[in-house]
Design a protein around this nucleic acid. Structure first.
Lengths: 337, 337
DNA sequence: CTGAAAGCGCTTACAG
DNA sequence: CTGAAAGCGCTTACAG
């Protein structure tokens, strides 16, 4: 299936390849006669320029790479959608890589993106600088989104990982909870680390128990949320409230509560991370720590275009906030902070 | 940021570009001396072959295109994940395009995929043959997944859209329901059409009302599910059971039931499409029509590799089945079919 | 406005 | 086993 080349178009139009190329790419220096002939020939032949050949000649590929930890996580699915739609505004095609919350797959995708010569890279990375070394060395314009890697100067768009957690802990302790179980994200991610630190420092400001047993380390995927809920609820002195550091672990943990016959809101309070639509449907609806994923995706692309243009944009931190719903009722006899 | 080329590697290794190329691509005809020198030079320089140049020379790009209707739909997110993971087994990079349930965006992505010269294309398409014309004309190996376009000979992997719906209708009527509201998918999609037809023919086998008012046409997105639930529940003679044709419309519809103070399972029975994890967490858990999305994604890739190899594989239809949960209690006085 | 020619970074028959 | 050379399909100074 040999596809039609610019050569064929030029021949049919009776002009040189150079002229055909000029017409096809909208170069001003073309005669009307040439424009007509070339356009007609191109549509008649169904000509479609070869992106590889064009990219090889020009310095740009008009593509950006997006490396995310997990498409199946609704938060990242929304983020992917936001990035892609915004990239379209700049005529960029988004190459999408799904790291599966796995450092090796992530690094392989970084490699592929560089091999594909993307014009820019947006990533929600895990790990440390060594994972990024090839990307940094290549000098490809890069922006981090949601997560960052410390000790790099890569611009980023991240959520405020402190305020939401703080509000959640305050809300729970105000409602009388003293034992809050925390299902943490992996400490190889900045969000995992920052949210845990925020949780611990928020605890210190309250009368709640600061007990190492109340923290379970998950991996941001559903099964680990389930494992975490099991572990915490089996404790000799189990928590009366649970807080999970992302939506997938929240889903896993809620499932375990249901299985064990615990009524959420009554038997155990629950705060989830990320405001995904399904969480407002669970009965009672889940209290969540929310942030604006759409803005995050758009801004990441905007920052990237600036980096590509040679500028060095400031990193952005987006606010997060607590949305209180039925899963965390305010107890009448609650303490005040 | 001029990147290092094979020329640089060859120079440093003291060999010709041809030899460097042979070593780098594992061609057997190379001496150990050359292998050593080239390998060393390549790693020392951080050489990364230019995929564009390579693709231009070879006939293949080692990429496949995946055009899906909506990443934010958990079903398609899962499908994307399945396809991508399977594609990796064949060393294919997956270029991902999100049509946003929009025919124009879909067609633009088809265009982009052809321009990028993907080795193959997997799509869950909407529309009719004209949308596909350029793809068919190009002769690029193509496989449909989940959805198909009629009057084409493209191999496909689709769910059985009949059995699950049939079981759902039978289950509901056996439980005494006579008025079942149906939130249909867009009729521009094969799944939308087939599921509606299955619903109507299943109704004909029962004593349930076959009333045009009981059918609402949505677009597979959440907001239309909400609109559908509103419309149906406002009917002078409203349905006692609802069935929605995909997960996103189910989410929207369940939200509306909650808002209106209707208790699902008690005030209104509910059957959702696609077995996404969150549906088992809603209280009561939702009865769903389930199919194996993971198998669907894997098989689509397997079929595509066969098409690429010049074979003409048979299309596959995967079974779907009803999973009964709390949202559709069996009424004690239910009719028997 | 137009064409001939060089070149983007690779791969691969063709000789040797 | 190795190198010189041609060529994949484009774009773009350079002359005219």
């Amino acid at each position: 299936m040999r596809s039609v080349t610019i050569r064929n178009v030029a021949d049919m139009a009776g002009v040189s390849v150079a002229t055909a190329s000029r017409v096809l790419s909208g170069h001003p220096s073309t005669s009307e006669v040439a424009r007509d002939a070339v356009s007609k020939a191109a549509t008649k032949l169904g000509f479609r320029p070869n992106a590889q050949a064009r990219s090889l000649r020009k310095t740009s590929t008009q593509t950006i790479g997006l490396v995310l930890p997990d498409v199946r996580n609704p938060f990242f699915a929304d983020l992917a959608h936001a990035v892609e739609q915004r990239a379209r505004d700049f005529k960029y095609l988004t190459l999408f890589g799904n790291a599966n919350e796995d450092a090796d797959q992530q690094d392989r995708y970084f490699d592929i993106m560089l091999t594909q010569r993307v014009d820019g890279l947006i990533a929600a990375p895990q790990g440390n600088v060594t994972d990024l070394q090839s990307v940094l060395d290549s000098g490809v314009p890069t922006v981090f989104v949601d997560r960052v890697i410390p000790d790099t100067t890569v611009p980023s768009v991240t959520p405020d990982n402190v305020t939401g957690v703080q509000e959640a802990v305050r809300h729970l302790t105000n409602s009388g909870h003293r034992r809050i179980g925390y299902i943490a994200g992996p400490q190889s991610t900045s969000t995992g680390r920052e949210r845990l630190a925020a949780f611990q420092s928020a605890l210190a400001d309250t009368h709640a128990d600061d007990d190492a047993d109340l923290i379970f380390f998950g991996d941001f995927q559903s099964a680990s949320g389930a494992a975490g809920a099991h572990h915490l609820l089996e404790l000799p002195h189990p928590p009366t409230a649970l807080l999970a550091a992302d939506s997938l672990m929240s889903i896993g943990a809620v499932g375990v509560c249901n299985e064990r016959g615990l009524t959420i809101g009554t038997d155990v309070a629950f705060v989830a991370y990320d405001d995904i639509e399904a969480f407002s449907l669970i009965n009672p609806a889940l209290t969540v720590i929310a942030h604006d994923v759409n803005a995050m995706g758009r801004l990441a692309v905007d920052l990237l275009t600036q980096v590509i243009a040679g500028e060095t944009p400031e990193s952005v931190i987006l606010p997060s906030r607590l949305i209180v719903r039925g899963s965390t009722p305010s107890l009448p006899g609650g303490l005040t902070s």
